[in-house]
Amino acid sequence: MATTSAYNRDDRTFPYIAIMPVALIVLLLGAVPAGYTFLLSLQRYELINPPAVYIGMKNFVTLLTDDPRFVHALVFTLCFALVATSLELVIGFFIAHLLADREVSHFFSSMIRTLLLVPFVVAPVVASYTFKTLIYDQTFGYLNNVLKLVGIPGVDLFHGSIAAPIGILVMELILRTPFIVIILYAAISSIEVSIFDASKIDGVNWAQNIGRVIIPVIRPIIVIGCILRFMDALKMFDEIYVVTAGGPGYVTENLSIFATTQAFTYFHMGYAAAAAFLFLLVVVFLVALFMRRIRL
């Protein structure tokens, strides 16, 4: 890399000019709003009772020490992202492994992979409405009617505190596992055939093949897939907003729902900004943690 700069005189300025627009975007459209959120978070700013008053770190202290609802939202967000990501990884891995299986016809596999791209291009808000009414609803939805045909009593998403998170989880799995499938397929199918042949000669069985050959080889890609999926699961908003609105009670309230409720239902702009800023800190911390892994 150093050698290229010898060829040309404008190479000293070139990178700076080239990243200038991007740096400006990051600064003006990323750093400025984030800074503004931080400023808001230091205020008691009631939209229906202005003006704003500076109160220092009080919002943060209240959030962390005196708001079980925030703590619940934080824990739910992290747990949900963790569970969803792990399940998607396991299920996605086996589907990807099957798709890359040399016994499965190439045409069939590529057709399935194309079909699995559909979830990416459908607006999440539309998919969520479909789940809410056309699938989950016990009166209007298909799920309950199909279950009835098989003789299983209906599933009530709003009974007890466990059915609703599971309902959201299943929906998330159906909509997002294809992401894992597609990138893991790319990884598995790019493993050199000779590696498999060598292991076949060694006489390893199916499980050993996965555990000792495939996973170690594609580990970096698994890590990247997990990180991206995990970060997106943290941000999840549309699905919960539409299907359960955080209910029943507070059961499915995550950080995004908590912060929007504080901001636009209760009009505690400062408090909401503090919650959003803490959320941002969690994300920045996690990105920093994952950064080395992502840059392969």
Binding site: F158, H159, G160, S161, G246, G247, P248, G249, Y250, V251, T261, T265, Y266, F267
Partner: peptide, 18 residues
């Protein structure tokens, strides 16, 4: 807005049997 939201969430907890 805020108070009714809080009370209706508890109402939802009762209906759900929580």
């Amino acid at each position: 807005g805020e108070t009714a939201d809080i009370i209706s969430k508890e109402m939802s907890n009762i209906i759900a049997g929580i």
